[in-house]
Nucleic acid binder design. Structure first.
Lengths: 252, 252
DNA sequence: CGCTTACTTGAGTCTGGTCAAACGGGGTGG
DNA sequence: CCACCCCGTTTGACCAGACTCAAGTAAGCG
């Protein structure tokens, strides 16, 4: 478990040239907000693939916004069983729980190299005092996370293995596209079958056999080190999933 | 699906004598906050057991805080499969998703007669502008919900049927006790086995057989119209669940 | 008294889990 | 350069936990 804690003082991505602002999916800041966020931002954290960004059971003085890369959020049972509860992508705020409660109740690990904006949890209250609109946005992000978790729970609780798998892939591709992580079809997702198994609540072996069935239906192709999604609509139909309503979204 | 929409203009529970404030688990308001919330509150909604408080796919102009009673939050698949994603108890804020996003992505139904405070979603922004501390509390509540969902997902994804069942009951009793819904042991929960099945992602039949095993171990006793929890510690041990950190919590 | 709702129970089936082994590509040390 | 190893994937055999179907019971209610 490599903990990466390299906070760079010189910034590769100053807020005025935030890579997220370029994307249509994200809203714009006004000048005052930009100035505040720029002050609120404490640095940048770069982590390698496989590194732990946040660890369950620890206190962390920081909050992060993902600028670049992929990761996943997970919990462990005492005997080591792992459940991936959600994935994190550019624009997502992570560590809010740790900021509001006490200890982190989950861990976050990078699926690919990541760059994150670092904020001080102590200063979150000043954001609430000085910029109600930004505070509202923080709540919006928390609420969106809740919405995704509801969907995941529905899936794990009530869908069959193949439906779950289809839902997961459609969900990930949809999200990844709106933030510009991938483009065009086919789309490659940097997951191992173990990640999929731990997300869906299945065993590795059965996940593999299910992947095979999806491949036979020409919905995906499994490659070394990742899954190529060939037919998102087919996956959505199989999962009976309607997709997510996507307007312009905030971020901090 | 009986929709109860009785907003009473005369208040049985004015904010100054809010039944939640009496409980140790909840924080106090200062005078200004109390005045604001009292203005923010638009009325009271009383619903019968079995009635739908909020329905998936609709827009609802209101936000609610549960004052009295129990309910559950659920989602449906197109073919009718149901997943209960969480339960709601006194002090919980519901409908926030509807306020921030567009349509409701889940429904809420009463498990027992409920009384709810009604707020106008349109005025949420004024709460954010005028009372940053209350805004912070709203986010806190959203974050706590996220935390519970993570736990539920871990349970449904990675625990066996009997562990899940044990976790669910321990979880519900713990929450119900801190808000004073039940007291002492044994503790009675107003659930049917169908509710349990839809929460745990199991079939009704298998839920019944699992309930039987818990009863044989003297952890619970199933009664007509509810579950009597005899040994919470035993349930927690069986589920390998540590419990939740419980400090004083906010509410609106 | 009949109807409905919730809980029980048993039989048979199947989805998904476990165990075990093997493959194949990429990296590494001899 | 080759042997070896490791990681992620693949496959088969067998097992078990959970599902479906079907029927029956018990309590509550109009």
């Amino acid at each position: 478990m490599a903990m990466a804690e390299t906070v760079r003082s010189e910034r590769k991505y100053p807020c005025e040239r935030c890579p997220l602002m370029r994307r249509a999916a994200f809203r714009d800041f006004n000048r005052k907000e930009l100035a505040f966020v720029s002050r609120f931002k404490r640095g940048e954290l770069t982590v390698d693939k496989g590194a732990t960004v946040l660890a369950e059971g620890t206190r962390n003085p920081h909050l992060y916004t993902v600028l670049i890369g992929w990761g996943f959020r997970y919990k462990l049972l005492p005997d080591g069983r792992r459940q991936i509860v959600n994935f994190v992508m550019p624009g997502d705020l992570i560590g809010l729980q740790g900021a509001l409660m006490d200890e982190m109740q989950h861990s976050v690990e990078a699926l690919a190299p990541m760059v994150l904006c670092v904020f001080e949890r102590e200063e979150l209250m000043s954001l609430y005092r000085e910029h109600p609109e930004l505070a509202y946005d923080v709540t919006w992000l928390a609420s969106r996370e809740e919405c995704m978790l509801d969907e995941n729970l529905l899936s794990v609780g009530r869908r069959s293995a193949i439906e779950r798998f289809a839902y997961l892939l459609a969900f990930l591709v949809t999200r990844a596209r709106t933030v510009g992580l991938v483009n065009g079809a086919p789309t490659e997702l940097p997951l191992t079958q173990q990640h999929v198994a731990d997300t869906l609540g299945l065993s590795l072996v059965h996940t593999n056999k299910t992947a095979r069935k999806l491949a036979e239906r020409k919905l995906i192709r499994w490659r070394e080190r990742g899954c190529e999604v060939l037919d998102v609509d087919g996956l959505m139909e199989l999962a009976r999933w309607e997709g997510i309503q996507q307007d312009v979204r905030p971020f901090i």
